[in-house]
Amino acid sequence: PDDLEKRARELLKRGKNPDEIREYLRNAGYDQSQAEEALKRAL
């Protein structure tokens, strides 16, 4: 898994919901489609 996916998994483990994770990834400078893909793979 790429770093983005790892980060998404990490956040899920900490109890973040998908919307929070999307926002976090966007704020971290990733584009929307990258964030969506990583989140899908992590779920």
Rank of each mutant, 00 (worst) to 15 (best):
G29L: 02
L11Y: 05
L39I: 13
L43A: 06
A8G: 01
S33A: 14
R41D: 04
Q32C: 06
K6N: 11
E10K: 04
A28W: 11
K16W: 15
A8V: 15
A38L: 07
K40N: 12
K6V: 11
Q34M: 12
Q32N: 11
R14Q: 15
R22H: 05
R22E: 04
E37D: 11
E20G: 02
S33Y: 14
P1A: 13
E10P: 00
L43T: 06
S33L: 14
L12F: 06
R26T: 11
Q34F: 06
L25I: 04
D19T: 10
I21H: 00
E36T: 05
P1S: 12
K13P: 00
E20A: 06
R7Q: 14
L25E: 00
A35P: 00
G29D: 01
P1Q: 11
N17E: 08
A35D: 00
R9D: 04
A35F: 10
K40L: 13
D2N: 11
L12E: 01
D31F: 03
L39Q: 01
G29E: 02
R26D: 03
A35T: 12
D31A: 09
L11W: 11
R7S: 09
A28E: 14
S33C: 06
Q34R: 10
Q34N: 07
R22T: 07
K16S: 08
A38V: 09
R41L: 10
Y30T: 03
L11E: 04
E36G: 03
K6T: 12
E10N: 05
A28P: 01
A28T: 04
E20R: 03
E5D: 11
A8R: 00
D19H: 09
K40V: 10
Y30D: 01
L25H: 01
D2T: 11
E20K: 03
L43D: 03
D31Y: 03
D31L: 08
E20H: 04
L43E: 05
D2K: 09
Y24V: 12
Q32Y: 12
E20V: 04
L43H: 04
P18W: 08
R7G: 04
L4W: 05
K16L: 15
L4M: 08
D31G: 10
N17L: 12
N17R: 11
L12T: 02
L4F: 04
P18F: 09
L25T: 00
K6Y: 12
A35E: 01
K13T: 06
D2E: 12
A42L: 14
K16H: 14
D3Q: 10
P1H: 13
P1F: 13
D2H: 11
E36W: 04
R22Y: 14
I21D: 00
L25Q: 00
A8K: 00
R7A: 14
E36P: 00
A28I: 09
Y30E: 03
R14S: 15
L4K: 03
D31E: 11
S33M: 14
L39N: 01
K6P: 03
E36K: 02
A28K: 08
P1W: 14
E37Q: 09
D31I: 05
L39H: 01
E37C: 08
A8D: 00
L25C: 01
D19E: 11
L25F: 15
L39E: 01
D19P: 03
R7N: 07
L39T: 03
G15E: 01
E37I: 08
K6D: 11
P1T: 13
R14M: 15
R7Y: 15
Y24W: 12
K40E: 11
I21V: 13
R14N: 14
N17D: 10
K6L: 13
R41W: 08
R14F: 10
E23R: 07
D3L: 10
E23G: 05
N27W: 09
L4I: 13
S33I: 14
E5H: 12
E5S: 08
E23I: 09
E37N: 08
A35N: 01
A28G: 06
E20W: 13
L12A: 04
Q32E: 14
E10F: 05
E23N: 07
R7E: 13
E10C: 08
A42E: 02
K40Y: 13
A28C: 10
N17M: 09
N17F: 06
K16A: 13
E36Y: 04
K16Y: 15
Q34A: 13
Q32V: 14
N17T: 15
E5V: 15
L4D: 02
G29N: 03
K16V: 12
E10M: 07
R14I: 14
S33H: 14
N17V: 06
Y30S: 03
A42Y: 04
Y24A: 12
G15S: 02
R14H: 12
L25S: 00
Q34T: 11
R22D: 02
K13W: 07
Y30M: 08
G15Y: 03
R14Y: 10
D2M: 12
Y30P: 01
R22P: 01
E10L: 07
L43P: 01
D3W: 13
L25V: 01
A35W: 06
P18G: 05
A28L: 15
G29A: 02
L43N: 04
D3V: 07
K13Q: 11
A42C: 05
E37F: 04
E20L: 04
K16D: 06
K16R: 10
D2P: 10
A8Q: 00
P18L: 11
R9E: 06
P1C: 08
K40W: 14
L25Y: 04
Y24M: 14
D19Q: 10
R7H: 13
D3A: 10
R41T: 07
D31P: 12
E10A: 09
E36S: 04
A8M: 10
E36I: 04
D3K: 07
D3T: 09
K40S: 10
D19A: 09
L43R: 04
E5Q: 08
N27G: 09
A28Q: 13
R7D: 08
E10Q: 08
N17I: 05
A42S: 03
L4R: 03
A8Y: 02
S33K: 14
L39K: 00
R26P: 00
S33D: 14
P18M: 08
R26G: 04
G15R: 02
P1V: 14
R7V: 15
E23M: 08
Y30L: 10
K6E: 13
E5P: 05
N17Q: 11
R26L: 15
E10Y: 07
D3F: 12
L12S: 02
L39Y: 03
P18R: 07
L11V: 01
N27F: 09
L11T: 00
R26C: 05
E10I: 06
E5L: 15
R22N: 04
R9P: 00
S33P: 08
A42K: 01
A38K: 01
D19K: 08
L12N: 02
E20M: 06
A35R: 03
K13M: 11
L11H: 03
N27Y: 07
G29W: 01
I21S: 00
G15W: 02
Y30A: 13
L11I: 02
Q34Y: 07
Y30W: 09
E37W: 08
R22M: 15
A38T: 06
G15T: 02
L43K: 04
A35G: 03
E37G: 05
D2V: 11
R14W: 11
Y30V: 10
Q34I: 11
D19R: 07
N27I: 12
A38N: 01
A42R: 00
E5I: 15
L11F: 05
S33E: 14
N27T: 10
N27Q: 14
E36H: 04
E20N: 03
E10W: 09
E23V: 08
Y30N: 02
D19L: 06
L11D: 03
E23P: 00
L39A: 02
R26S: 07
L12V: 06
Q34W: 08
G29M: 02
E23T: 08
K13H: 08
L12Q: 02
P1R: 11
Q34P: 03
N17G: 10
R9C: 09
R22S: 05
L39G: 01
Y24H: 10
Y24G: 03
Q32M: 14
A8N: 01
L39W: 01
R7T: 15
N27M: 13
K40T: 10
E23F: 05
L4E: 02
L25G: 00
Q32F: 11
K6I: 12
K40C: 07
A8S: 03
E37V: 07
Y24R: 03
L12P: 00
R41E: 04
K13G: 09
K16T: 06
D3M: 10
A35Y: 12
Q32L: 12
R26Y: 10
L12W: 04
E20F: 10
I21F: 04
L11P: 00
R41H: 09
D31N: 13
A35Q: 04
D2W: 12
P18K: 06
E37Y: 06
L11A: 04
N27K: 13
K13N: 11
E23D: 10
N27S: 12
S33V: 14
Y24L: 14
E23Q: 11
L12R: 03
R41F: 05
L4H: 04
A38E: 02
G15K: 02
K6M: 13
R9M: 10
P18Q: 08
D19Y: 06
Y24E: 12
N27V: 11
